[in-house]
Structure formats: C-alpha cells, structure tokens
Design a protein around this nucleic acid. Sequence first.
DNA 1: AGTGCAGTTGACTTT
DNA 2: TAAAGTCAACTGCAC
Length: 522
Amino acid sequence: MSLNVVWYKRDLRWFDHAPLAEAARCGPVLPLYIAEPALWQQPDAAARQWAVFAESLAELTEALGALGQPLIVRVGDAIDVLDALRRSHRAIALWSHQETGNGWTYARDRRVRAWARAHGIRWTEFPQDGVIRGLKDRDGWARHWDRLMSRPLIATPDALVPLQTTDLGGIPSPRQLGLDDDPCPHRQPGGRHAGLDLLASFLDHRGARYHREMSSPNTAYRACSRLSAHFATGAVSLREAAQAARRRLDALDALAPADRLTFAPALRAFQGRLHWHCHFMQKLEDQPSLEFENQHPAYDGLRENTYDAGRFQAWCAGQTGFPFIDACMRALTDSGWINFRMRAMLMAFASYHLWLHWRPTALHLARLFVDYEPGIHYPQAQMQSGTTGINTPRIYNPVKQSHDQDPAGTFIRAHLPELRGVPDPYVHEPWTMPAEVQQRAGCIIGTHYPPPIVDHLAAARVARARVWAVRHGAEYHATADAIQERHGSRRSGLPPSNPARRCRRARSDPAQRSLTWGSEAD
DNA sequence: AGTGCAGTTGACTTT
DNA sequence: TAAAGTCAACTGCAC
C-alpha cells in the first residue's frame, strides 16, 4: 500500500478538505507542509503573511496530531522535499488542492507535475472555491459555482494512522525563509479558530449592517467579516462560510421584522462577495499573464516611461499630502487590512492621479495585505488602473471620498497624528489652512505634513483624457469584446459594442454590482 | 395669484 | 465601485 502524502499549500484546515478525506480513505496519510524560501522571497510576499500562515500551521498540526498524525513541516524546494520522501518510502501518492496562485507557484506546480510523471507518482488535485481549471467558456460559471457551494461539506477523517516518522520538523521563523522585518502591530491573528470566531460573530451581530458599513473605514474594520485572511490561508473554506451565511439567512425568519430587514440584505451582499471572490480568481486561473501584463495591450506603453520614484515613495509612506489617502495607507500598513473601497481608491489614486504603472504599486499593496490572494489582486489592480479593456475607468476624488467616508475626520486623525489639531473645516484639505490656523493647529504644511503631491483635479483630468484616448483608438473595440467574452461576468459588466450581443445581454440576469478584493469577502 | 427667472435636485447619460 | 455633464422637474422669490 502506498503512503498518501497530503500536500498542504493554501488550504490549512482539516474540515471540508477533500484531499485529506480522500487520502485517508485510501490508507496511511502523511500530512506535509513545505515552507519554500523561494516562494517567500518573491516580491509579493511579506513576513506579515507568513505570520498568519505560521499561526494557521500551528493549529493545523495540533488538530492533525489529535487525529493521530501531526503535520510534517519541511523547509526547502518542493521537489527536493517530495523526492526525499519518494526515496525513503516504497511508494507514495500525492494529494492536494489545485492552487490558483502567482506565476511562481504555477511554475512550481508544473515542475512537480513533470517530476510526478517521471517517477510514476499519482498526483490527485481537487478543485477549490469553485474555480474551474481549463475553463473554455464563462457561460454557466455562476450556476456551476452555486452548485459547488451547496454540496455537502466534507467531514474530517475520524482518525489518522500514526506514522513512525522520526522528525516532524518545526515551523520556520521569518528569517529562515529569508523574510525581512515587517512590523504590523495591529495584524489580525491567523488560524482556524480565529476564523471560525469571526464567522460566528459576523453572522450573529457584526454583519447586521454589512452592506451599509463596508464602505467607510470607520465602520468596516468591525462590520466586515474579516475572513479574507482565513480564505487566503484556507484555514476556513469558502464553502463553509457560504453555507453558514445561507443557514443564517434562512433562520432570520425568527427575528423581529426590524432586524430582519437590514440583516437579510447584508447577508445577501456577503454572499455576493463570496461569489465575486471566486469570479476574480477564475480570471487569473484562465490567464496567468494578468499578474504581469496589461489585460488589454492597447494600454502597453501608456505609463511605463513616466514612472516617478518620488511619487511612489510618497504614496507608499502615506505622505501624499491628501489626508484620507495617507490615513488609509498608514492604517493598512499598521494592520494588514483595509476595506475594499479604500483599496480601490488607493490603487486608483496611484494609477490615475500619480500616473504610476500598476506593477510596482500592486506589489507594494500585496506585501501589505495579510489576506493577499493573487487571483483577486492582479485583476483588481488592473481594473482600478483602467487597463482591462472591459471596465469603465473609475477615478476617485480623494477629497470627495474623504468627505463621504470620513465626514468628521475621525479616521484621518486616528492615523495621522500630525493632523490631530487641525480644525474640522480643514481636515480634508489641510493645505487650505491660513498661516495663523496652521500655527494654532501645530501643523505647518511643508513641515509637519506635506503639501498635496499633485493638483488632484488637474491630474484626474489629464489621466481621464489619456485613458480615453486609448479607448477611442482604432483596433480597441474588437480586442475589448474578445476580453469581455473570455473574462466578463455574465451578470454584469460593460455591454459589448456588438449590437446583437447587447440585445442578448439585456435579457440576462439583473446586474449584480458588488465586487471583491481580497477582503470583502471580508 | 400668475409669470419669469435663478438656483437646486434628482434621474439618467457620458466619459 | 466614480465623477462630470445633461436635462427636466421643482422651489423660492421678485415683480
């Protein structure tokens, strides 16, 4: 009988885990996590993400140990580790989830596939999160997702046969993986228990006004589920969250009408976010080049040659002179999380107002997100930069957003101590403070806080003109229609410019408007 | 009390 | 998920 190696990647749980359950039915299981230094040294990786993984791994090994066989942890290259197992055991079979990761994990999986084939090792991969590998056509995707999400959750094996393994290995430190220091004082904890606690409190009370409170960073930290980090590590399965939300929605009938009336739309909004989470991952699964290249090639060359390192530094440091932008960036740096709308604003501000190419800015955000999910990140980064070809460019006004989302300046003052003394009328645009008010506020513009790095109205005007000039170019629309056909949601998105298809679209489902970026299934 | 006008609001379209 | 522009309906007010 062969030894069944369950290769954990970003599915660090023991419940609703198909590879573990199937492998356990076939014989003895060796649960394995390979901490790959080369992966953690990629430019999108950061120690804060590893910290969440490490906490999840600690719980995983404890839980598997209770079943009979703790997790075995190895540090090194995946093929070196797997090949060592192959050589020390008579026969092995490999079990895992399919991973929709970045280009590096995609290449690693192809290497492992070749290695497995060369040695006659069976590698069984299970789909995760409703992402379909080798998808030819987006039609019917939403129905497929609904079907997958309503399948029964997979039970944890009753017991695992203990192996006579000499060395379990330990969870490596960030330094062992080559990670730099990455202080994140308000990071949320990793691990399945923390994830299940969040799910329970979100469905019990925190999420009651989710759809209304997700947009402002003043309310979002509490009112969003904050499950995104746990979906990224796989400590909680998307399906168990979707089914818990479903059950909660069904149970709302017992509530007083006043509670039901807000909670029901909130839960439906949450379900929508879970759907969009996978919708975006499917995009990167279908087209891994979205991590590196403009989705629509007509935008090639638009920003590449105008890159301004000083602007990039100011944006990264939360020193652009726009208080709301800077407060969002500093809150994100401090906690590893910010709500979807502010992520979109930060990205759009960098791409439009500062005219920075999305690659370096997307990598910076990736390193700040404890819930970094490549399949959501790159399609979103491109969408907020106007390079997809299928989404209308949306340019956020940093001052208007400030008034809308933080009218009293609470969030700004919480994260920009240098602005605490600035009176209300100036907190959104401190550069308009007269000199004597600056004196009294203890905030001299140019000394304590920078003047705005750009004239935001003029910068938005120029950016809009540049992007629309590309859209009006010859050749643009034929390519855009092809992209819509391949990637566009069948529920929403721009109507194609082909009139025949526009008619067909008009009869399809009502527009589902919310989208997700990491978090919001957060 | 009706009319004309400026300014406002909201729905809808365009970029 | 944005913001600006357009247009029509509406409001307050002077005459």
